[in-house]
Design a binder for these strands. Structure first.
Lengths: 210, 210
DNA sequence: TAGATTGTTAATCGATTAACAATC
DNA sequence: TAGATTGTTAATCGATTAACAATC
């Protein structure tokens, strides 16, 4: 791993957006596109697009542009959409349920194999064909199934307490919806903190300062 | 409006994080904090904290640091957490339901006054004490209640079609969970596009490139 | 007063944009 | 071949960090 070590966070955060737009173009039967035309669609500069893509390889062709199908596939590879990583979801409240039911985990490189909640009353209930298990079974489940990613839809204190345990159990990545910031300082652990409240407050600011 | 026009997006995106950490410190009964101590807690540099805060005013005191309660309140004001803007939510599927039930709209400056879905079968069902209405009633509802913010939990094509109509109806801000990017080029309209799929793919990349 | 810590200016760093030679 | 468009280097811009005089 670590082949693309030099690539900056700013570039990486744009990759899913490229993937999205290229996917649409592909759906619409478009075969090729120049960085200039893509820049107009996406609201980036053509220069930035060429720079970004060149972090990973020369995917284009002078005088022609980029082949959409193959660029889409390349970016998919970079993002690991076919990696099929085993993931577990912890917390089957409103948000956890919505995430479990709503997200296309498969299309993004994940395979949701387990759902946990501390609420005994939920145990056995099915979400997406996956049974909700009691959190007590987490240790054995991880030992037997070796998931590598955990989706946290639990309150801050629970997330704070659980994160180190999950690292012990072999979790390499967190998709964290709790109010708590999982430190980016676990060595060798990837974290995406999704702070919906922060996003809502940013919107509040912008609406007030249009 | 537009008083803080010069402030960069990077700074604004950090404000909710300040607000969160200061809120916790306040809860814990801490009275004052220096930029240095705060920097260690938050993982920013002290320099950045002082720069960020000074975009909005001199909230600190030399030799003392920052008073937590008053800084918390100031940032709250900047973010508009007491603005109580009328908001509507469109799309009461899994995600819409979770957002409606899970988010503390009030604590972030919003008052959720209406929920809409095109599915007739959901009409009348209550979420958080708010009845789900049929989307057909949107026009009259907006005319009568003048909401200023719309939360979109609907598929891309629906979001794309609805956005301009909502602008017509007086919506000034979008919290958009659809796959579609609402253009930041509506003049005078604030947009927060929340792309959960993009976040998940970014995590996928990071896990593969630790 | 002396010590601490801010507010603010200057220096550095990184990311974006522009330019253009290479080449399909 | 001529035209188009990339890959890549150089220039610009903005954001972060460092430094320090002001001041509580």
């Amino acid at each position: 791993m670590g082949k693309n070590e030099g690539v900056s966070i700013s570039v990486i955060k744009r990759l899913p957006r490229y993937y999205r737009f290229l996917g649409e173009l592909k759906e619409n039967g478009v075969i090729r596109i120049s960085s200039k035309d893509l820049s107009e669609k996406m609201g980036f500069t053509a220069s930035q697009i060429r720079q970004d893509l060149n972090c990973f390889g020369g995917f284009g062709q002078q005088g022609y542009g980029y082949n959409i199908a193959s660029l889409y596939e390349e970016i998919g590879k970079i993002l690991g959409v076919n990696n099929n990583r085993k993931a577990i979801l912890i917390g089957a409240g409103n948000l956890g349920k919505a995430i479990a039911l709503h997200m296309s985990f498969e299309a993004r490189g994940f395979n949701l194999i387990g759902i946990f909640d501390k609420n005994e009353a939920l145990s056995g209930q099915m979400l997406r064909g996956i049974p909700i298990r009691n959190i007590d079974g987490l240790y054995n489940f991880c030992r037997d199934n070796s998931p590598t990613v955990a989706v946290l839809c639990i309150p801050s204190p629970a997330a704070q307490a659980l994160a180190p345990q999950l690292v012990e159990l072999g979790i390499k990545g967190f998709w964290n919806f709790s109010h708590y910031d999982i430190a980016a300082d676990y060595p060798g652990i990837a974290v995406e903190n999704v702070h919906l409240s922060d996003s809502l407050m940013t919107l509040s600011y912008h609406v007030s300062n249009i």
